[in-house]
Design a protein around this nucleic acid. Structure first.
Lengths: 192, 192, 192, 192
DNA sequence: GATGAATGAGAATTCATTCAT
DNA sequence: TATGAATGAATTCTCATTCAT
């Protein structure tokens, strides 16, 4: 299923159409047209319109997470892993500008069922951050006087906000240039 | 206009209805009903449905920002101001749980016109953070080897993510208890 | 509600459109057009398309039954009541040819919820027949060696079939001319 | 054609599926699945969906009528033939409960082309009744002061209504037990 | 100002039918 | 013959917005 050509076409078309128009303004017929399939064909591969969005996210984030994990596992220290994580986060979203728009804007919908599904996927990504934090605490790199959850929230929140700002500014600068600075900021804090 | 009773009723009803159902599932008629006015009356006070959302945000954020600014101005150092900022952010969202839901979830709309308006309002809030950062850099509290924009993004991103997590966990713990920890984390960083 | 003009218009339009096209081929928009209201207006008065059909039946059968009961109650004997019943049945369906088509053909749908509602209404009509049979058995006119339910089924089945035949033959003869003959047939049987 | 295995499979599957879901809710794909053939195969044997319904009826009623005629022809008098007719009608529908549902509910379709075809088949069945009535009139058993068509309508209408009632009551009693009573009722009438 | 009945554009989804394999 | 993936026409219903009262 996942590797049937029409499935791929629809997924790719959906990312683009949603990035361009927003989820609510993305008619199924528009996605079908861009994917060069008939409207009805969409429903052979997806339960309904929502399912398209969820599937897009699962598909894309799946790769995303996998690559990130692989890259991280090559590093020893929590510091290096965090640096790699930031790099991968920025790199991958830079390479898929449509995906960036979808994740930063479209997925923040609050329709409960939708959020739940999305959070499930997001969870695995947050788990990756948690693993870095755990490692850091164990080997003494990261301070242990702060709730690790909070640390993870700062890391993710910061990356997320920097990407959103970048998307909102029409991706006019290079995210990747900020890697070192963000890493320093997160690890050392904003105070001298 | 802003202080005519029906206007207030509609704004308050809108916050609740949107928090409960999400923006897209919040029919104008539902808001009218909760506000105890006729459907048509809404259109005497608001241009269209979008205008309701924007107005809600402007109204609420207006107060929000004003109070925050007042509280901050009583403090001398950037450190104290940041602490106060965090405290106010958590306090106010805790006091208006409906508003918290609306800001964390519903405002992540991607409809271009909508976002633009929302960002305008958000801008003044981010300006407050910027003013704290500027002060800190001037008086030497905050490191000057990092882009101040990035610092602001970390601060806002972290607060935003912690609130979103709290909203997603159905507000089952007290945000306010995290103030000190978050302040320490932001200022000193996650490394020992 | 029931006597608001638009409600009436829709009901009348529905009878005609359904009689002409059959229920499944009667698009809501077609009914709206004939009723000279907007499509959406239909939904202010009816829950959904099915509700239109049920309401048409309830409305029409309501009158139908009422008139029949009134006419019957003026007669003393079961024989006279039966004669009147046959007369009324034929007369009313003759006067509302559209209704005849709808009752004989369209209502024989088997969608469970639909049938259930229709049967509820039909029940009151069958009750009228039962009351005639009961009277006849009590006062000795009608034979008591046969299950009264069966008698009712014969009476209704016969009338129903004669009307269906008439509808199928495009109502080319006068139903009312058969009243006496049908009455004789039912009461005396087909044998000499 | 008629005796190719796939044809039979489809016919049998169709009867069941239509009885269970009603004609309109019986998707061709559902019938194909139950018949264990591909969707497209259906169209090698039937012109379209309507053709399935008509064919089901023709097939089933063909047997039905044939058996009924054979049974009747063994009897001498109109009375005996009528008794046999009633018996066969009830017996066969009791033995094929799915068919009973289809004939009593699903064939009451109003789509003109459909009805026309169905009526053609039904005609031969009604002809059987007519032949009984003719015989009865000829040999003096049946009264000649009543239009024979009307007699046939009473007979068929009564049987039809009794079967419909039985189907509607979920076939919870035995039709066959009513044979004698119905025969007496039809021949002698409801009056003493 | 206030009402709420009426409007009608708009969109997701279904499913009979086709046709390349 | 047989398959079943693909098609796309067709239709119900929703809901923001208007406007006569």
């Amino acid at each position: 299923m996942r590797d049937r050509p029409k499935y791929r076409q629809i997924i790719e078309a959906a990312v683009e159409v949603i990035a361009e128009n927003g989820y609510h303004a993305s008619q199924v017929s528009k996605i079908a047209k861009k994917a060069k399939v008939a409207d009805g064909t969409i429903y052979l591969y997806f339960k309904n319109k929502e399912d398209i969005l969820i599937s897009v996210f699962k598909e894309k984030m799946g790769h995303f997470i996998e690559k990130t994990e692989n890259a991280i596992n090559e590093k020893e220290t929590a510091s290096d892993r965090l640096l790699t994580f930031i790099k991968m986060h920025y790199k991958q979203l830079t390479e898929s500008p449509y995906l960036a728009i979808v994740t930063q804007l479209e997925l923040r919908q609050s329709k409960p069922e939708l959020r739940q599904e999305i959070n499930k996927v997001l969870k695995s990504y947050l788990d990756v951050i948690d693993s870095i934090v755990s490692l850091g605490i164990e080997n003494g790199e990261i301070r242990s006087d702060i709730n690790p959850q909070l640390i993870r929230q700062m890391i993710f929140g910061t990356l997320d906000e920097t990407v959103t700002t970048w998307v909102m500014k029409s991706q006019r600068y290079r995210l990747i240039d900020q890697v070192e600075e963000v890493h320093r900021l997160l690890t050392k804090g904003l105070f001298k």
